[in-house]
């Protein structure tokens, strides 16, 4: 059975379509509610996790980049862990940005009627329709910036999705029925290879979470238990960092071999060495 990943430009539409799709298909739901479990497991405030999913890091709001990446990695690892069970519909946890290259995942983007959204914002905030449109455009820009900063992807890019459905004219129930039908297609059935790809993503996410707890500038890839960590360090710290990474990454279940690569900014490194 497959995985359905839903992303939308409006939280309410995302909830509505996600819930309806889960009802029709009988799949499990992975959504915002999972943050409570993640918060308890990693001993993080739930609000901080929610904030990491919404906004870019800011020192003023007590969310430095290091923590931001760590919170996102915790969410990613937990979501991927649950997705491995198959028959899941996920939304509101940014899975569309990290569940990549998995052939049994149907990726759907839902677009809401922009005029209806503007009217709702105008009513909610007591502002004019024109002002509401500006607020929406700003939110959209911020979302794009967030997705690019967090995962290097523009979440509005249609190339990320198998299907984009605009609710301007199409009824939400009809949209959910279309998604449910699409996921039944043969190409979305899990295969040994696609399950393996998901297992690789999960292992990489687990290692990343373990490393980001104490380090920064970490990128992890994995393949069949072999893990490649790319990071940055000054020349004199390289050996020490390599050992620390190997020790931490090696303690994650399923890791057989760890390779560490350094991707340094040589100009910055030279400047720092001359100080």
């Amino acid at each position: 059975m497959s995985i359905i990943v839903i992303s939308a430009d409006d939280r309410a539409a995302e909830d509505q379509i996600g819930s309806r799709t889960a009802e029709i298909t009988g799949y499990g739901r992975l959504e915002y509610g999972l943050l409570k479990e993640i918060a308890a497991k990693y001993d993080i405030e739930e609000e901080k996790l929610a904030e990491a999913l919404e906004r870019e890091p800011s020192l003023l709001r007590g969310m430095p980049p290091k923590k931001w990446y760590y919170y996102l990695a915790c969410i990613e690892a937990e979501v991927l862990e649950r997705l491995a069970a198959d028959k899941m519909v996920t939304w509101s946890l940014a899975a569309h940005l990290y569940v990549l290259g998995i052939s049994h995942a149907l990726r759907v983007r839902i677009l809401s009627d922009s005029e209806k959204m503007a009217k709702a914002v105008a009513e909610e905030n007591g502002v004019s329709l024109q002002k509401a449109r500006k607020i929406l455009a700003k939110r959209q820009r911020q979302r794009v910036q967030w997705s690019q900063a967090a995962y290097g992807q523009d979440e509005t890019d249609p190339a990320l999705y198998d299907l984009v459905i605009n609710l301007g004219q199409i009824d939400p129930d009809e949209a959910a029925a279309t998604i449910a039908k699409a996921v039944g297609y043969r190409k979305f059935e899990p295969m040994t290879y696609s399950r393996k790809c998901l297992a690789n993503l999960l292992l990489a996410a687990k290692v990343k979470t373990r490393l980001l707890e104490t380090m920064s500038d970490i990128d992890v890839q994995s393949r069949d238990g072999r893990v490649i960590v790319t990071t940055k360090a000054l020349r004199r710290d390289k050996q020490k960092k390599t050992l620390a990474i190997k020790e931490l990454a090696g303690s994650v279940e399923g890791v057989n071999f760890v390779e560490v690569h350094f991707n340094n900014d040589i100009f910055k490194e030279a400047a720092q060495s001359l100080r």
């Binding site: 299907l163 459905i165 605009n166 199409i170």
Partner: peptide, 18 residues
């Protein structure tokens, strides 16, 4: 820009007939 359309379909895992 996908907001210009009602449906955007990627022909890859979804076939022409689907």
């Amino acid at each position: 820009d996908s907001t210009l359309y009602d449906l955007v379909i990627r022909i890859d895992k979804i076939t022409v007939d689907q």
